[in-house]
Amino acid sequence: MFLQDGGAKTVQYLDFLSPGLYNYWIVIFLMMVGFYIVISRGNLVKKLVGLNIFQTSVFVLYISMGKVEGGTAPIFGEGFNTFSNPLPHVLILTAIVVGIATTALGLSLVVRIREEYGTIEEEDIHAQEDESL
């Protein structure tokens, strides 16, 4: 499908003025910010906040894929014929609730780590581990 008219479409995609792919790039930017926080910061709470940013960017990706030009929210009512795709909405509803559950589990792990080591900085924890060896 994409191969047949690939040439013409690629030209269209590379046109930076068209809003066609802008939503994906926003998502990628947010995703990379979250990823950067997770891999570069040593503080465990901050890592979890980064993970949340990453997660929300994925939500935005799904929801923006479900958007139909000129559509409304998928609730039946008089005078509306075009609806956005309800399937991504359902999946992301599930994902948000699962996300909060995993965040809660991560935070309780942080609390336990703090009680065991007295710190929530990754470096300090590694240092204490090395000392005990």
């Binding site: 479900g66 559509g71 409304t72 609806f83 909405h89 509803l93 609730v97």
Partner: peptide
């Protein structure tokens, strides 16, 4: 803005 009102509530 993206028509996902249920998701917006939950978020």
């Amino acid at each position: 803005n993206l028509d996902a009102v249920d998701v917006a509530f939950t978020e």
